[in-house]
Amino acid sequence: MFELRLVQGSLLKKVLESIKDLVNDANFDCSSTGFSLQAMDSSHVALVALLLRSEGFEHYRCDRNLTMGMNLANMAKMLKCAGNDDIITIKADDGTDTVTFMFESPSQDKISDFEMKLMDIDSEHLGIPEAEYEAIIRMPSAEFARICRDLSSIGDTVVISVTKEGVRFSARGDIGAANIVCRQNATVDKPEDATIIEMQEPVTLTFALRYMNSFTKATPLAEQVTISMSSDLPVVVEYKVAGMGYIRYYLAPKIEE
């Protein structure tokens, strides 16, 4: 028997909106530590890793480890039927091939049950080591989303360059070129407006903007985004899920042939 109950159901709605465009079908892994997912996009150059820890749920029961294969577009369709203030319960009985989503209105006067068939998805799982990064940028997530959106109107790749001056986002295309430089700015009243750059080494990497724009779908989840970079390694773009865990996106850099 697996059951989780999340009072702030809107978090789960936002999580699905954050991943459904990047990945079609994915396995949710349920264990005593929490509700997690790791999945790659169809070209296998981008990966999303989700972790929602069990202690973050109002109620969490997982009798034995369970993998639930779901079509994320269908799951998102069902979660769209939940109100932003609804309590969301997900449950699956052992040995059944369906999962139930239950939505309770705050005043408990409306209870909805949505049942979805599970799928068998064989996806390879990657071991991602916790690494030290040459540069880590923490900045307002809305700012990062705005930069990715603006630069994608200029070109299809972004060069992200971290130096002691700050972080520079550059793009070029048929109509011209653009450079956006963000400097370290820790002296702001609200911490979520700060831009903090930890740089061990200057690092410059090139990425496809369409993936970066897909990652920024997670912006509603967190005020800040963390971008971790090391030369010739995939970038990690991380959004915290308030008090529960995180969504981490990994993207392979574009390497000069």
């Binding site: 790659m40 070209s43 296998h44 150059v45 981008a46 990966l47 390879e124 799982h125 990657l126 071991g127 991602i128 080591p129 790749t157 090139t206 496809a208 390694l233 995939p234 990994y250 392979a252 850099p253 574009k254 390497i255 000069e256 042939e257």
Partner: peptide, 14 residues
């Protein structure tokens, strides 16, 4: 020309 290599070249398949 720039290429992106699949992530399994960077991370080990478990």
């Amino acid at each position: 020309k720039r290429t992106q290599f699949p992530l399994k070249l960077y991370f080990v398949v478990t």
